[in-house]
Design a protein around this nucleic acid. Structure first.
Lengths: 210, 210, 210, 210
DNA sequence: AATGAATGAGCCTTCATTCAT
DNA sequence: CATGAATGAAGGCTCATTCAT
């Protein structure tokens, strides 16, 4: 006698349901392509419930952006912050590898969030908001790079943009269909690939004044 | 005081107007976000004119994709194909530099086209077509890389994605507000920056079997 | 002072409202001439409500056809089937009279439905469906005639068409402005008139092989 | 060097071209379903030419109605007026037969005009105009009937409506697909059929005061 | 709190109509 | 004159949003 859908749930739980459904639908259909009907259906609730717990479509999208951006930042911060986990050396290259691995891990395990953040929202009224999220990540990367390579954070910014862009491109490749299967976790594979390409160059930049 | 509205124009001219406007609006709003009204307004013509010269929204989008894809491919092919222009050596690094410069030139001068091609959500019925255009460019990059570094084109694909992503990231930085002014053309600056970061790594990959 | 607009109604009720309005508008304007706006306005609901309860314009038209066809067929079948109601003899002429009276009754009391069914242009994709509805009624008439006059149903078809056309013409005359007032129900008057004109001829056909 | 389409033609000729095309298209697609583009294409002229020679769509439709109505009236008048053509007796039944034959001849040889007049135009703003045309025919029939059967024209009107309706119904049957092939001209077949059904009844009415 | 029902606004598309050549 | 090109005005349909239960 207690139909799941109509059971009163704690507000935060309902909100999570709605956000999860929204991210799923937004990632598949895009901001304009997604309909509130579809989101409600995916969440298994009625449309007014979506409004009650997620607000307007724009607010809902913004909430998705915020949540996924924070999730990504947290994941990276945590991973980078964790000192050498005893798995190997703790030199600059290893730290770069771990940061990249954290990024790739976050992105490949939350593919929909990533899609919404970086592939669906780059247009229209949300371009600014997405840009802010993206810049936060780039900024963090620039700080890491400045610490490792020396030089100011400002000077490291273009390199950080390059690095983040490269990571995004590689992620796109991985999320595409045709890539070799591996036993290793994808994040490790991708991080090693990217490290191999960029580390020598970055290493050389250490000597130069940026 | 020349009313452009009711002015009769040659069909090709009008079609170009419409396509230009469409690319602009699509790049800003996305396929779903763009309205035919907006495109008509941007083109300075009436909505029926958009239909007369650009066809259905889907056809119009497809035409934009086709035109910009060809434009970018042509620009890159031409620039890369031009042999050493006497400005310096013609080793692998120099060829990479020129290819990157061509890419940056094409992308920075046709930003909107690139956005439509590479940054738009590839959802729904156009996923395939957009993807095909994207992949054509990355494929070209992969071919160049394979030629330079040895190894198969398939093996070069992730590196190509990485490279294109890195270039994109750097372009974003450049098109952002805060970057130092230079006398040099942006494409040269950006190409040198990216070359500095990735060339050492790529160079090292030459020795390894990819 | 009871705003009917925002009032929540049972779906069947709303659907009936919408169908009624649709039949009215279709009968006045034709399939192409009727606009969903007009139907919504006539029904006193919003356009989305029309779509919610009546579906697409084509579906709505089909639903109108189906409903009116059934209504007319039922009315005629019932009236004809009712055996001699004690009002007089039950010979062939009397049965013809009763059938005609049933037809006139159905047609004069559901004029719009009849118009949609029988007078609308049967163009385009609905030609078949409209025609089917029309033919069902004429077919029924042909069956009755065949039973009364002998001969096959096929042979009776032209006579049935003639009869139905004659009845239509007489109905038009009655619904026009200038006709004498009577105490009798119109259906009786019209049926007697038509019987007087056609019965002698039909009676004579009984002897002949059709 | 003189392309037919662009050759300057006498205005009446062009007008005829346009009217013919219009009737064809209207009869196939209906008033609302027909597009001026389609009419222009069918006529083999440009759209402005249609406007120049046929006027507005409504005017064009009205012109079609007028022309076909007149054609039908003329045909009937002529046929009825022609005294017994020596092919047989000239009693009242023969005169009825000839009038009906004239009607069926006009209708079956100008099927499109008939369709436009009686099957496409019965709705919307042209209902009145069509009604007028129809009434003219019915009036003529009533006059003939009054002359043959005795009684006033007014009294003959319902019978005239009946007769015209019957003729229309039979025409519909004939214009449908499935009817037996004959060597005789259709008009003769149909006229004989209808005469057989209605003449006995009409004959009997002669004795009664209508 | 949760929802079925309702709607205002907007979008894609086409059509009747008219300039300008 | 004849026409290609252009447009204002709907029309069918859907969507984000909100009542009323």
């Amino acid at each position: 006698m207690t139909p799941t859908a109509r059971r009163r749930l704690a507000p935060e739980v309902r909100r999570r349901q709605v956000l999860d459904a929204a991210i799923a639908v937004f990632s598949e259909e895009g901001l304009h392509g997604a309909s509130m009907d579809a989101i409600a259906a995916r969440a298994g609730v009625s449309k007014p419930s979506v409004y009650a717990h997620g607000g307007t479509k724009d607010e809902l999208f913004a909430a998705c952006l915020a949540r996924e951006a924070e999730r990504l930042m947290t994941a990276m911060t945590t991973a980078v912050g964790s000192a050498g986990d005893g798995e190997g050396p703790d030199d600059a290259e290893a730290r770069l590898f771990r940061a990249l691995r954290a990024f790739f891990h976050a992105v490949t395990t939350h593919r929909q969030g990533w899609t919404v953040l970086y592939r669906q929202a780059s247009t229209g009224e949300f371009a600014g908001r997405v840009d802010a999220a993206r810049r936060a990540i780039v900024r963090r990367a620039a700080e890491l790079l400045a610490a490792e390579l020396g030089g100011s954070v400002e000077a490291a910014e273009p390199v950080a943009h390059t690095l983040v862009g490269a990571a995004e491109g590689l992620t796109d490749w991985w999320l595409g269909t045709e890539h070799p299967a591996t036993d290793e976790p994808p994040a490790d594979v991708l991080a090693r690939m990217l490290t191999a390409v960029v580390w020598p160059g970055l290493d050389r930049l250490r000597a130069l004044p940026m």
